[in-house]
Amino acid sequence: MVEGDKAQPAMNDGTRQVLEAIRRDHPDWQPEVTRWGEVQLRVGREDLQAVARALRDDHGFNYCPSETVVDYVKEGRFELDVRLFNLDTGAKLVLKSDLPRDDATCPTLAGVWATCKWHEREIWDMFGVRFEGHPDLRRVFLSESFQGYPLRKDFVDARKPRPRLVRQR
């Protein structure tokens, strides 16, 4: 996560234009440039929806391939990581937001990019982050009766071991 001009060579033209546009239009956003030539924005979760909407409508980020969460248990936070791309110019952007671990809620992005509906179902299933305003927040892989969120770093499987089924001869 190097800021400044050191990492410029990997950046493509679309990303450079977006970086200039963001610095011009939104002086309060504080974009960084990652080592891999992506623009990285870190926003508070209360601003998440507004920023996402602006990125989609004003800067052309129409494609969201990945949205996920990393559990930094020692720091007591989840980090939301949203990858955005502009299919027309090839611009890349990373949207980050910190969510406190003891209040794991986040406004949903399903209204901005429809694909986030299923990304967020997966996050809810695996990390237990509740997305406010999500239209259909059910678990996606595990059954509804499953206790706990298995990709949290402090998850302990409390179920009794299932007896082995041995064929009687």
């Binding site: 129409n62 494609y63 299919l87 429809a114």
Partner: peptide, 9 residues
Amino acid sequence: DDAIAWGAA
């Protein structure tokens, strides 16, 4: 539009 919004690839 749906293909882009729903993350088809």
